Simulated assay, not measured.
Amino acid sequence: MAARRSSDWGFPRWRGYGSSRDTVEVRLCDRHGCDQPGKCPAPKSPNSKDRWYFCEKHAAEYNKGWDYFEGLDKEEAARRAKSEQAENAGYAEAQHYGWGGSGDGSRSADEMRALEVFELEADADFDAIKREWRARAKKVHPDVKPGDADAAAEFQKLQLSYEILKSAEERREWRG
């Protein structure tokens, strides 16, 4: 029987530097029936050291309903949200890579706040967003309520929220 030639010869090397032929143990996603690698640790309960390990899809699903500020007073929650936003600001320029900070996994935190203005769910499609924006904007438009400062402020809030959601939708369409 002839000796098998190593794939570790010549230039370029036929396998990566530092790699080996030994088997590598891969932890699978803890979600029942999922066969993807579980790379995203998630706490089993608040303040617990025990972790689930999910794939990215199931980690986003798990974190969707998680309230990170539960049990905190308003000032402490605002302080933590501000520090989290400051930490995520460094990643804002990486939005074109498909991720851009905290959110439910499918939308950014800014998009989630904009959806709250319209009182819509996170999975609302853009047609529903547009319908809600038009309905609400018609009620508080400066032409309908001239001289009303509260209506003007509400209209600006609606307009800003709509612009955030519109630009996010355009980015999604552009990415394909």
Rank of each mutant, 00 (worst) to 15 (best):
A2R: 08
A3Q: 05
R4V: 12
R4G: 08
D8V: 08
G10S: 13
W14V: 05
R15I: 01
G16Q: 14
Y17V: 12
G18V: 03
S19T: 15
T23I: 09
T23F: 03
V24I: 06
V26E: 04
V26R: 10
L28K: 11
L28A: 09
C29M: 09
D30N: 07
D30E: 06
D30S: 02
R31G: 02
R31L: 04
H32G: 01
G33M: 04
C34P: 06
C34G: 08
Q36R: 12
P37G: 11
G38L: 09
G38I: 10
P41N: 12
P43L: 07
K44E: 15
K44W: 04
K44A: 08
N47Y: 14
N47V: 12
S48Q: 06
K49C: 05
R51T: 08
R51Q: 15
W52M: 04
W52L: 10
Y53K: 10
F54G: 11
F54I: 07
C55Y: 09
E56N: 13
K57R: 13
H58L: 05
H58E: 09
H58R: 12
A60N: 15
W66Q: 14
W66S: 07
D67Q: 12
D67C: 11
F69K: 11
E70L: 15
G71M: 15
K74A: 15
K74C: 03
K74Q: 13
A78D: 07
A78R: 09
R79Y: 04
K82Q: 10
S83M: 11
Q85M: 03
Q85Y: 01
A86V: 13
E87H: 10
E87F: 11
G90L: 05
A92Y: 08
E93H: 05
E93G: 01
A94N: 06
A94F: 14
Q95T: 05
Q95P: 01
H96F: 05
Y97F: 12
G98S: 11
G101W: 11
G103I: 02
D104L: 07
D104H: 09
G105K: 08
S106W: 06
S106T: 12
S108D: 00
A109C: 06
D110N: 13
M112N: 06
R113L: 15
R113C: 08
A114M: 12
A114R: 06
V117I: 15
V117P: 11
E119D: 15
A122Y: 02
D123R: 07
D125K: 03
D125A: 01
D127L: 04
D127G: 04
A128H: 02
I129S: 01
K130M: 03
R131P: 02
E132L: 01
E132F: 00
W133T: 08
R134M: 11
A135C: 01
K138L: 03
K139T: 14
V140K: 13
H141W: 09
P142A: 08
D143G: 08
V144W: 01
P146W: 13
A151D: 00
A151K: 00
A152H: 02
A152L: 04
E154W: 00
E154I: 00
F155I: 00
F155G: 00
Q156K: 03
K157D: 02
L158G: 10
Q159F: 10
Q159K: 13
S161A: 15
S161T: 06
E163W: 09
E163A: 14
A168W: 04
A168F: 07
E170S: 12
E170Q: 14
R171S: 15
R172Y: 06
W174T: 12
